[in-house]
Design a protein around this nucleic acid. Sequence first.
DNA 1: CGCTTAATTGAACATACTCAAAATTTGTGG
DNA 2: CCACAAATTTTGAGTATGTTCAATTAAGCG
Lengths: 236, 236
Amino acid sequence: MKKPPPSIPGCNECTNRDNLFCTLSSEEKEFLSEGKGQNFFRKGQTIFYEGNHPHGLYCVYQGKIKLYKMGDNGKEQIVRLVGTGDLLGYRSLLSNESYRATATVLEDSYLCLLSKRKFTELLDTNSKLSRKVIEKLSQDLRRSEQSLIDLTQKTVRERIAEALLLLKAKFGVEEDGKTLAVILSRREIGDFVGISTETTIRALSSLNKEGLIELGGKQIRLIDVPQLARVANIYD
Amino acid sequence: MKKPPPSIPGCNECTNRDNLFCTLSSEEKEFLSEGKGQNFFRKGQTIFYEGNHPHGLYCVYQGKIKLYKMGDNGKEQIVRLVGTGDLLGYRSLLSNESYRATATVLEDSYLCLLSKRKFTELLDTNSKLSRKVIEKLSQDLRRSEQSLIDLTQKTVRERIAEALLLLKAKFGVEEDGKTLAVILSRREIGDFVGISTETTIRALSSLNKEGLIELGGKQIRLIDVPQLARVANIYD
DNA sequence: CGCTTAATTGAACATACTCAAAATTTGTGG
DNA sequence: CCACAAATTTTGAGTATGTTCAATTAAGCG
């Protein structure tokens, strides 16, 4: 067991920037903040399952989460990774559907649960907010369509290299500037790029042998980022 | 050469329903309609290319269009199919980016080009419209994420069966109730499901031999839809 | 420290791709 | 309407890439 949950501040005091809510006025933030739920999840816990209905909108105060779908054969496909400051569950909420993916916590996380009613109310009255939402969805859509190409047309090696760079961009690195700041199992990395665990391992150890990365347990250090980028993009 | 382009009516007289604009008032439709461009494209012509900047929002008065991305190896991946009544190019417009896909016409099509300024203006003033846009993007995103799973986890056979059903749902069938109302080349079908042309052909002729479909030139007749659905979903 | 889970390796196998060649279809102009 | 050229479809054979399954080693946890 680790540190106890800290208390999460109100939305007005929240230090996470750059999210949808940064354009809200103090009053609006107050309004949204009021009565919000605060949740602590330990690594491995599931926030919601595919098929559940959204109660509200999750906002990640701090943490890392994977959002994945189950294939018919039981294999998982990670469709999005979610980090500090990100929102979670907005797609289903906005289209009034049940969740189409499962959200599981990658490391201990603190989430706020904002009221669905309040959020949609704000959406109706604040055109800047809805504008932001539209932009966010558009970006997600672009990314998803890009993944679509990557998954069908790139080799395992390319996809793994790309995934490592994506993980760096998304979650950053430790103080050494090289070690990825997320811990994913080999299976999870495979689920992310759509390949089997064994193939993932082989691709990683090949990059390791070539000196582009270093593996130490579950830690992955990106040694030669430019070369990784080249591997990720270019065909043999 | 075929029929000459008919004149396209104003948005108020447009018979296409169910699109984003169905909630607009007559005045708003008038506003949007005013000064819109009207374009006719022949089969094979390209409406815009990946990298171009959106001038406005395309609305398909009548026609069929494929939206595809180019992989690094030059292979295409169809990311969306667009038909009568659908909008085209909204994702890029809404996120203020250049087009991330190329739009090419599958059969002679009539498109309206709505002013970007007018559209965004309406978006800011009409919360019902932005709500609709949000729902549409959410649905697109869900579909895209589903494709992601399908492409990585389903076999060629399953994907082909699914694609045929998708094509039926999207573009419908001829009067016989069986013949798909779109003509796609084998390569295009492959580009849609992310497999090579040859493999596409083999999968189709296998379904043909089993009596689930009938092939006649580029025409495809769906004979046993329930069985196709079973093929599309279930693993061996 | 012992146990459970995850990572790794090897080998056989399957699926889909590539390349080349043949057959068909489609488009065009007379 | 026909003939020809071009494009597309189809087929076969060999190959590559990644999967699966089983066995081994290493790591994480109480």
